[in-house]
Design a protein around this nucleic acid. Structure first.
Lengths: 343, 343
DNA sequence: TAAGGTGAGCTAACCGATTAGCTGAGATAG
DNA sequence: CTATCTCAGCTAATCGGTTAGCTCACCTTA
């Protein structure tokens, strides 16, 4: 593989001149410039980012560390982040901590070795010893995405989880439901906790509260939601509506309903926060709150690149996006209890 | 940030000894070894992969270049590839060519600059000028995934697309369908072409052929499949069954059916190749052929790492996986045409 | 004409690892 | 006692770029 010296020799110039042409970092006469460009093409030369980043101290790499790559929500984050990062001239290195704090630690030290210029982090949860660089040296610029941690000193981009839980629940309440249950995410994660809090707040505002055994939490996974929903619904006094805390959880709840021979929304209504894209042709269509995922990702990358470029240690910025309710047909008005017909 | 010299100084040894401890590349006495390890911990030292890869000529990076990151199928590939690659000690850099040949070229040259050790490539299609390193230097080890290109000299891991199209179509034929249509992918892509060929072969084997205007191709996207399916179904002589060439396309077809006020499978049956995971709770459940995606990805990474390690230029290996039919309830037996009742 | 200024392009140090080759102490053998 | 061998550990070159600082030809200006 040709290197900068080969190019310099072929063009009859110094390596400094080649470098100047490559980076537009100094004036080079048209004659030399074109000789250099010709030599580059001739030798099929491409500069080594390893050498460049060793010297410059930055790698043009951004790490995306996600808590669960199998979750389609985070898959979309990968998609959006790749595009955003590429637009700024960076490349995206993707990691999956799989909701495991130890894995997250391993990944963060790997990210450090790679000397990534920045980190987009969906933290595992509050059990995490946060990416606090133990020692003196200043930490790698980091933006928390989707979730935060309590001792947060990093930038973050999240949604208003409480509003998400509240909006979905209020929709159910407006349909007349009173016995509402919830299949929530893990409560040590802000998205799990916040959405449940929003759900509870919405009920409380109407003087209601869910039966304790109608509120169950599981992992943010389809199979976990399935078994939680199933055991919840197998009890005799099942709720008339359920709030599912995420898109994949809603799918698990749906499968549990189907497997129990129940119908949605006839027997039970479902509202959720988030969904899986593209399933609008299947029935029922979920009623859910949605996140502006692309905007959120773009904003996160913008914050990150901004902090990389001017590494001033300004106060951390925490951007909160609002969810929006999208009505499908997974919810029905509460059926009148037994015979409550007219006169 | 501490470097190897700082560690050497702190431990009172040479950098060569520190390097030997780091890489277990030479015997170091227990005394010195522990002093080195203590210094490393003390200084919170982590070796620079940039320097290491400059010297060693390999970066421990593997590039995953995908034709459409928005497609949930490739999202799952990202998930599986990240895990496989990490298990071999590599990190995964993800790129999206978005089905654009120019973008693919840009990405491949970027991959070269990053001196990635290997490439997992889902090529855009046969329009691509393949990653043929124009010049002398030997090419970066590459494994084609899912799709191949005609002048293929790389390793590849694919499914038997013809079998996939055939199996799904045979299922429809066995249910008595004769007027079968197809919403296929782009025909310059092997997955699009092959699946259609399989569909046609299955029909031909029974002495049938689809109406030409019942076979339409679109992009591997939900919206594209939606509009293709919609215009196909709006014609008066619509088919009684459709084969959809991918998971997202099947979803688009479903949405078209729903929007046209038709019912699946009552009015029209759907079989597809591939699906979206987790939607088993929604109706109808797709009848489809499935790929052993995780096995395929593991195999692809294994091939790639193997070629990286021992860079012998053995013949290229092309591994083909077989699809498997999974029956849902999106297909019904053909209703008897008009009145064909008993005596 | 001499002093000073300008600027294109070059030389060489440097980034932080790895590693070939060297050193020198201690063991072994004759 | 000396020659030889062994091997832990060191020195210094090297990977391929970037860039501070220098050189030197040419242009102004007094």
């Amino acid at each position: 593989m040709a290197n900068i010296k080969d190019v310099a020799r072929a063009a009859g110039v110094s390596t400094a001149t080649v470098s100047a042409v490559l980076n537009d970092s100094a004036y080079v006469s048209p004659d030399l410039r074109s000789r250099v460009l010709a030599a580059i093409r001739e030798l099929n030369y491409s500069p080594s980012l390893a050498a460049r980043s060793l010297k410059r101290g930055r790698s043009q790499l951004i790490a995306l560390v996600v808590a669960d790559l199998a979750n389609p929500f985070f898959s979309r984050v990968v998609w959006a982040a790749e595009a955003a990062v590429a637009a700024w001239g960076y490349s995206l290195v993707v990691f999956n901590s799989d909701e495991k704090p130890e894995a997250e630690q391993r990944i963060l030290s790997r990210v450090r070795m790679l000397s990534c210029d920045g980190i987009l982090l969906v933290p595992v949860g509050d059990t995490t010893q946060h990416p606090r660089r133990e020692s003196d040296s200043k930490p790698i610029p980091t933006v928390l995405f989707g979730r935060t941690v309590t001792d947060n000193s990093s930038d973050s981009v999240t949604i208003d989880n409480i509003a998400a839980g509240r909006q979905a629940t209020e929709y159910l309440l407006d349909l007349g439901h009173k016995r509402i249950g919830s299949v929530t995410g893990p409560l040590h994660v802000t998205t799990g906790r916040g959405r449940l809090d929003g759900m509870l707040a919405a009920m409380k505002a109407r003087g209601l509260a869910p039966e304790p055994h109608h509120v169950r939490s599981g992992e943010f996974r389809e199979d976990s939601a399935y078994s939680v929903a199933r055991s919840l619904l197998e009890q005799p006094d099942r709720p008339s509506a359920l709030y599912a805390a995420s898109g994949v959880m809603a799918l698990g709840v749906m499968r549990a309903i189907a497997d129990l021979g129940l119908r949605c929304p006839a027997d039970i209504s479902i509202a959720s926060t988030d969904t899986i894209p593209g399933i609008g042709g299947l029935r029922p269509r979920l009623t859910r709150t949605e996140h502006p995922l692309v905007d959120m990702t773009n904003e996160a990358v913008r914050l990150l690149v901004d902090r990389i470029r001017r590494n001033d240690q300004t106060e951390s910025r925490n951007i909160v996006f609002q969810p929006a309710l999208v009505v499908g047909d997974s919810c029905a008005p509460l059926r009148q209890e037994s015979a409550a017909a007219g006169p």
